[in-house]
Structure formats: structure tokens, C-alpha cells
Simulated assay, not measured.
Amino acid sequence: MTVGGSGVVIDVDGLRMRYGSTDVLREVTFRARRGEVLVLLGPNGAGKTTTVEILEGFRKRSAGTVSVLGADPAEGDEAWRARIGVVLQSWRDHGKWRVRELLAHLGSYYAPYADRDALRPWDTDELIALVGLTEHADAKIQNLSGGQRRRVDVAVGVVGRPEVLFLDEPTAGLDPEAKREFHDLVHRLADKHGTTILLTTHDMDEADKLADRILILAGGRIIADGSADELARRITGKAEVRWTRDGQRFVHTTTESTKYVHELFKQYGEEIGELEVRRASLEDTYMALVHQHESGAPTDFRTLEEVTAR
């Protein structure tokens, strides 16, 4: 279901949050569209949790306008809340329940809000299979491993087939295989089911793999908004060219990597072994942009080294 102009389902304009005389959020503005995966990055204390809690309707803002699925979250009723899902960092209050029983019970609360456009809740066994817990469907939650419990957390968050899903550090405690399966799940929810997902994480590799757009929050403001590639282009720094020849390894730093590699092959041809061009990673970009903000550096900085030099 398309909500708002151009499929916009989250619309934040001039959001401000003040505690006493301190502004935690200042003029935060961004949008998210149907089926888009947004990753919110930022240092501890930047205001990420406050922002998400306002969008979820758990905290009232001081100023600005916020719309999620066409409604103000501060005034969202049960029908509105049935359309969103939340996965917290930790949610393990019902250890004595069995996985299938818990999900079936929670799903029953969403059934009254089903319609032709939104089939709610998710079929319990289908959902259990989706999060990879079929073999543990009848196990008590308290007997599951940490990673398996985290999968239950995710299942609880999506049991009502949410149109907007909020994920707070969703892969904390998952092993690499489970993390990879979770990433596949996020892509399926967004691409196949049109779920809009806002995710907070400190895992830069995860952000790079999942995000359609990345928002960087620092000092209570959005200091960057774009894809990983778009943000990296804001750092016009040098690239490292690494290669091997005659068993020796070489590294060269250049601002014109394509031209350099072309000249390299003209000179050495098939003598070149392994070849790698390393540009600024998302972590490099993130650190540079945050440091730029904290140091008050100009926005048209030239190299990563110049920005991060202390």
C-alpha cells in the first residue's frame, strides 16, 4: 500500500528534542519510501535511540513534524501500531513459552487489523521457517541459544507483517551464518513484501550490505544522507593500488587509480599477479564525516588523511 506522495511512508521535518536546556535533536529532516532500507549510524549519544523512539510513538518530540504511514506517531492508535514492527536490542521476557505458541499467541492480536491489502498475522509456521527456527518450533525459548533467541526477537517484531519495521542492533549475538541469513531476510522483506526498514547498527559491514540509504547522525543533526557510494564520493581522497610482480608485493597511493592501473599493465602486462584497488570503505567515510562535523572542518575537504589527521 502506497502511503503519501511518491510512496513516502516516513516523513520527518525539523524534528527537535529538548531535555531542559539541552537539544538532543536539532532540525532532523529525512524521508523513507516504501520498500527502502535506511541504516541510521552515529556515535553513542548522537540521538539515534531518541529518533527511533519518536518514530515508534514511544516518546513525544519537542518540535517539528513527524509522519509514519500517514499518521503522527505520538497520536497513533492500535490500528496504526498494528502496521509497524519493532525489534529491540534484547527481548527475552517469555522464556517458558514455546516458540510456536508464543508467535501464534502474539499473532492473534493482529488478526482484527487484517484486510485485503494487509494479510495479518504471518502464518506461524511460515514465519518460523522464515527466521530459521523450524527445528526448534516446539522448544522453550529459555532453552534456545543466544543466536536462536535473537531469531525469536526478529520473529516477534515481524509477526504482524509490518509495513514499517524498526530494528535496533538486530544481529547482536548472531554467528556469521545466522547474520548472513538475517541479511537475506531483510532483503526479502524489503524487496518482496515492500517493507520499509529503519535499522540502527554499529556494524559498518552490515550497514554497507543492507542499506539503500545511510543516515549519519552526529551532534543531534543529520550530517550525511545517501548511499554508501554517494557518501564515499564526498571523500575525494586517494586510492591504494596493491599488486604483486615476481613474488614481490607493491603498494601505490594515487588520486587517479584507473589511469595508474592502465599504465601499470602497459609496462608489466602479464607479469602482474594479484591486483586490488582499495578506495575509502564505509567505515573510513563514516569516521571522516563524523570527525569533520566534530572538528568543524569545511565540507569540501580533499582527502581522508587531511580530514582524520589530528
Rank of each mutant, 00 (worst) to 15 (best):
187 H>P: 02
187 H>T: 12
194 G>N: 11
218 A>N: 03
192 K>C: 09
221 R>E: 12
220 G>Y: 06
191 D>S: 11
196 T>Q: 00
189 L>T: 01
224 A>H: 08
228 A>D: 13
217 L>M: 05
184 D>A: 15
210 L>P: 08
191 D>C: 04
222 I>D: 01
207 A>I: 00
206 E>T: 05
217 L>S: 00
187 H>Q: 10
218 A>H: 11
218 A>C: 14
188 R>I: 02
214 I>V: 15
204 M>K: 01
199 L>C: 14
192 K>P: 07
192 K>M: 08
216 I>R: 06
184 D>W: 09
187 H>N: 14
199 L>P: 04
214 I>E: 15
210 L>W: 05
226 G>I: 05
217 L>G: 08
208 D>A: 10
211 A>F: 06
221 R>M: 08
200 T>D: 03
195 T>G: 07
192 K>L: 08
217 L>V: 09
192 K>G: 13
219 G>M: 09
189 L>M: 03
200 T>R: 00
205 D>E: 15
225 D>R: 15
196 T>F: 06
207 A>M: 14
208 D>M: 14
203 D>F: 01
217 L>R: 04
214 I>L: 15
196 T>H: 03
188 R>D: 08
189 L>W: 06
205 D>G: 15
204 M>R: 00
216 I>N: 06
213 R>A: 02
225 D>C: 10
210 L>D: 00
222 I>P: 01
226 G>W: 15
201 T>H: 04
198 L>A: 08
219 G>A: 06
212 D>C: 06
221 R>I: 04
213 R>W: 02
218 A>E: 14
199 L>A: 13
228 A>K: 10
203 D>T: 11
202 H>L: 05
226 G>C: 07
216 I>K: 05
215 L>D: 00
200 T>A: 05
201 T>G: 10
198 L>N: 03
204 M>Q: 00
209 K>N: 07
186 V>T: 06
213 R>I: 08
203 D>C: 07
187 H>S: 12
184 D>E: 14
219 G>F: 09
207 A>T: 10
216 I>L: 01
187 H>D: 11
221 R>T: 12
201 T>A: 02
228 A>S: 15
